Computed example of a mutant assay.
Amino acid sequence: MARLKPPRPLDESDDRESFDCGRESMNQWFRRHAWRNQQLGVSRTTVLEDSESGAIAGYVTLSTGQIEREFLPKASQRNKPDPIPIFLLGQLAVDRRFQGMGVARSLLFYALTTSVLVSRQIGSFGVLTHPLDEEVRGFYRRFGFEELPGDPRRAMIVRIKDLERNGFGAG
């Protein structure tokens, strides 16, 4: 069983080349774009590191964004600005060596808690993500994410107020 250090920001010296989550597109994004996006300030990548080997067990990225009001269910559109501010959970991946150990869940909890805490300062309707397939959709569904009915990209969202109601960002 891996012993993980607390979540921390990606560092330029982190070994991104040996990371392998089993999805080449996610591996390549991490290797080629994660650090550059962080330098540019367009997203922040947070990693979990194995305390023994120093290997990156997983990563998650957050940034801000917006969605068109029409993508929300009709009941959620009322009295909302257009577009609606959101947090974007752009990437979440776990290295094969650490899969099945709760790393994805830990990274998601970190991202959702961070989003709730930051939303108290800048305001946001929810956390949006674009799952790659049905298995990933199922993972997000277990944490309260719902499909946006009007979004052609089949994004999923969880509302900040629902996260707060479920204890994210408390105490």
Score class of each variant (00 low, 15 high):
44 R>V: 14
71 F>L: 13
79 N>G: 05
76 S>M: 14
131 P>I: 08
59 Y>F: 15
161 K>N: 06
148 L>G: 13
161 K>Q: 12
125 F>C: 10
107 L>C: 03
66 Q>H: 12
35 W>T: 00
99 Q>N: 03
150 G>F: 12
96 R>H: 00
85 P>W: 06
12 E>S: 13
77 Q>F: 03
72 L>I: 07
58 G>I: 09
92 L>E: 00
42 V>P: 12
106 S>V: 02
58 G>M: 07
97 R>V: 01
163 L>C: 11
132 L>Y: 05
97 R>F: 00
76 S>P: 03
133 D>S: 12
6 P>M: 05
18 S>H: 05
90 G>F: 05
23 R>T: 11
128 L>P: 01
34 A>R: 10
41 G>I: 13
75 A>H: 08
145 F>A: 07
16 R>Q: 04
112 L>R: 07
61 T>M: 01
69 R>M: 01
152 P>S: 14
51 S>T: 13
49 E>T: 13
101 M>F: 14
91 Q>K: 13
91 Q>N: 15
72 L>H: 03
152 P>W: 04
125 F>A: 14
72 L>E: 10
157 I>G: 06
134 E>H: 08
83 P>W: 06
102 G>E: 01
101 M>V: 00
124 S>W: 03
48 L>K: 08
62 L>W: 00
147 E>I: 13
123 G>V: 11
169 G>L: 05
163 L>H: 08
28 Q>C: 07
28 Q>F: 02
167 G>C: 07
90 G>K: 04
143 F>H: 13
102 G>M: 04
95 D>T: 06
46 T>F: 08
40 L>Y: 08
84 I>L: 08
26 M>V: 04
56 I>Y: 06
8 R>T: 13
150 G>Q: 14
2 A>G: 01
60 V>G: 06
141 R>G: 09
149 P>R: 04
105 R>I: 09
167 G>V: 11
79 N>T: 07
107 L>I: 05
104 A>L: 02
43 S>N: 09
89 L>A: 03
30 F>V: 10
63 S>D: 01
50 D>A: 11
82 D>P: 02
137 R>L: 07
40 L>G: 10
5 K>Y: 03
165 R>Y: 11
136 V>Q: 13
105 R>Y: 02
71 F>I: 12
25 S>H: 11
116 V>N: 03
83 P>L: 02
131 P>D: 08
91 Q>W: 02
93 A>G: 11
108 L>G: 03
28 Q>G: 01
149 P>D: 01
